[in-house]
Simulated scan of single mutants.
Amino acid sequence: MAASIALVDDDRNILTSVSIALQAEGFVVRIYTDGELALKALIDNPPDLAVLDIKMPRMDGMELLRRLREKIPMMPAIFLTSKDDELDEALGLALGADDYITKPFSQRLLIARIRAILRRLDMSGRTDGEEGATPAEKIVRGRLEMDPARHRVTWGGREVTLTVTEFLILEALAQRPGFVKSRDQLMDTAYQDDVYVDDRTIDSHIKRLRRKFRAVDSDFKAIETLYGVGYRFSEE
């Protein structure tokens, strides 16, 4: 079945050109001209992935994603943001976006990012017995338990809801506790298909991971920073 993509942007030129490009790639596309129009529709009928413009009238993309996350925590989202607007990028990632792209953007790049996220989601969602699947073993590291087959994470028995990108970054760190992963290695884990992201993106995902775990355990310190080198997971 073709994946469904929701485009939310107040720029009708972008909606038209991007929707045509995505439909040509085999996606089912739904378009919305502002956040308020999109909110109820996406909650009632969630897409496989949403592409959200940040700056829109009535309800901007960040408020839209915040409300969507309350109802659909695992829905992947990509933000479209103004060129060189670092504040938008940081806030967007902090709210749980899986990725962001700055305007003006290449449609080829957007399609590559969409396919990469959907592929990661498909791989993390496969269970034993499904075509192409391999047995997904649970990862237990101290108080951390990760179940890739169910995309479920707990810390000390308390569930922590992660996006696809956050899950993959944490999984890469937890697979070899005590070993350092550079930002480049984490990029390769979370962003395949030669899709370029910068160091700031990985740092933002790490900050959000820490914030989510500290919400269930204020003493959480398992993700360590080695300045100038990268990150590692400690079993504490």
Rank of each mutant, 00 (worst) to 15 (best):
L80I: 12
K40G: 02
P135L: 14
A112G: 09
P177R: 10
G157E: 06
R69W: 06
L80P: 03
M56C: 03
P177C: 05
R66P: 02
V153L: 06
A50W: 07
K40Y: 10
D44V: 12
G92K: 09
F179S: 15
G132I: 09
I111T: 05
E159G: 01
G156T: 06
L91P: 04
A97K: 02
P177H: 08
I114C: 01
E70P: 05
E86N: 08
I54M: 09
A133V: 15
D60N: 15
L49W: 04
F179P: 01
A94D: 13
R152I: 07
E89F: 00
I114S: 00
V140T: 15
L121C: 04
R113E: 00
I139T: 14
A50F: 10
R69K: 15
D122G: 05
I78Y: 01
R108G: 09
L80V: 11
K83Y: 10
T102K: 11
D60R: 12
A41V: 14
L173K: 05
Q175D: 07
M59N: 11
D84K: 13
E171W: 04
Q175E: 15
L49I: 12
T163G: 08
A149K: 11
P57I: 13
M74A: 14
E63P: 08
L121V: 06
K103S: 05
K83F: 08
G96M: 10
V160Q: 02
R58I: 14
L93C: 08
G61P: 03
T81N: 04
L162Y: 01
D84A: 14
F167K: 09
A97N: 05
K83W: 12
I54Y: 02
S124I: 10
L49M: 06
R126H: 07
D122H: 14
L93M: 15
T81Q: 05
T102Q: 14
R113S: 02
P177S: 10
P148T: 04
M75P: 03
L80H: 02
V160K: 01
L87Y: 09
A174F: 03
E130C: 06
E137N: 13
E171D: 10
S82W: 04
A172I: 09
T102C: 10
R126M: 12
F79W: 04
V160F: 00
E89V: 13
P76M: 03
D88F: 01
A97G: 07
